[in-house]
Structure formats: C-alpha cells, structure tokens
Design a protein around this nucleic acid. Sequence first.
DNA 1: TTATCATATCGAAGTTCTTCAATATGTCAA
DNA 2: TTGACATATTGAAGAACTTCGATATGATAA
Lengths: 100, 100
Amino acid sequence: MKQKSVDTVEFAKAIADETRQNIMAICCCVLLSVNDIVEKTNVAQPTVSHHLKILKTAGLVRSERHGKQVLYTLNQERMAEGCCQVAENFAPEHPVELVD
Amino acid sequence: MKQKSVDTVEFAKAIADETRQNIMAICCCVLLSVNDIVEKTNVAQPTVSHHLKILKTAGLVRSERHGKQVLYTLNQERMAEGCCQVAENFAPEHPVELVD
DNA sequence: TTATCATATCGAAGTTCTTCAATATGTCAA
DNA sequence: TTGACATATTGAAGAACTTCGATATGATAA
C-alpha cells in the first residue's frame, strides 16, 4: 500500500534553514510555547512565529492552544515520511525504511 | 560505530530547489553529460552548471570527465545518509534505517 | 597550433527569504 | 469591560538565491 505522497520540494525548503532546524530540534519530543522557543533560540518572537508558520504549513509541527499560550511540537511522523520520500525518490538503490 | 556526520542544513539547502530536484531525478541511476541534463530540463547551460556545483559541493553528485564531456551522476549513498541523518535528528521516535 | 566542442565562471537582474520593530489579534483574570 | 499577557500579522530592509547572456577555460581532432 502506497504512503500518502510528500511534496519533497516543500519538505526540503521547510527544513532548509538553520534557525528552523534549531526550532525543530528544540521542540522535537516536547510541547513548547512560542515564548519558550524564543528564549531557547535567542531569535525575535515574530521571527519564531514566522518559522513556525512555515513548518506548520509543511505539516512538520502540530500546535494546540492552552489558554493564552500556543504549544508547538515537532511532527516526527511527518518528518520521517519526508525523509523516506526523499530517499525513495533519490536513493532507490539504497533503500531506507521506516521501522515501525 | 558512528556514521560520518552529515551537515543537515547544507544537505537540506542543496535539495531545496525544484530545478535541482529535477536534475537529481534525471541523473539518479545514470551518468549524464551536462548537455544531456540541459536538454532534459529546458534550463540554460550555465544554470545547470551552477546547480551541479551546489550538488557537488554538498557531496550529492559524483562527476568524471570523459574527453570533452563531464558526466554526472547522483550519489545515492550520500542521499540516503542525508535522509537518515535528518530522520535521526528530527524523528528519533520514528526510526528510519538504511537497508543495506 | 588552430578550430571546435563541452563545461565553467562572471556579472547583472529579478526574485525569494530572513529578520525584526511596530502593531493587531486573541485569551484570560479581575 | 478592562488590563495584561501571549502570539500572529504587517511592512520594510538587507541578505541570499535563481537565472541567463557573455565569456573564459579545458579538451580533442585535424
């Protein structure tokens, strides 16, 4: 059965920025507020919001509002799917698979 | 034993362009001259050379001169390594592995 | 060596991206 | 409702990227 397809250009663009990769690493296994991320990255709050929007649009983070705060976390499943799709397209002779 | 580390920002930037992904797809399992790639992509020759240089710098293509021509091919092993490294960093709970 | 072909580099134009100050929107407590 | 806090949006400046014409470099054949 075929996986849901991934737009590998959008995926790659979304992760192709150092600040975004910092944010991704920081909220990898935890739920963090925007302010938490601002503090941990030393990047201005509008900048963090902007990057979160790009990651959200690409489906790479989930968010949920808790009161005044909005908590973000990395969507690891989508990350893994993106990686597998890139590998499937561009490394067909070195297969990479999701170990589920 | 630890794999040679991958700069995931450079890796992601290298693949984060539609024209480059076209080139990558085209020379995935074959050796192609720059001119072959120009013809298959409808992109100007200097543009193709520029993209090939970016891919080369990131280690994602190999090249060998054959007479007047320079033949390029995608380095699938490096592609797979890049994908695995991204997954390792950003999807540790959805492990992805290279099936060798 | 010279002419020709293939690729690389240069330089400029246009586009996209990153960043942040200022401000708007949304949420809650009082 | 009002005030205070948290996040999103706007708008502008600068940086980085893509593209291609013109040209340079490298390789071969005659």
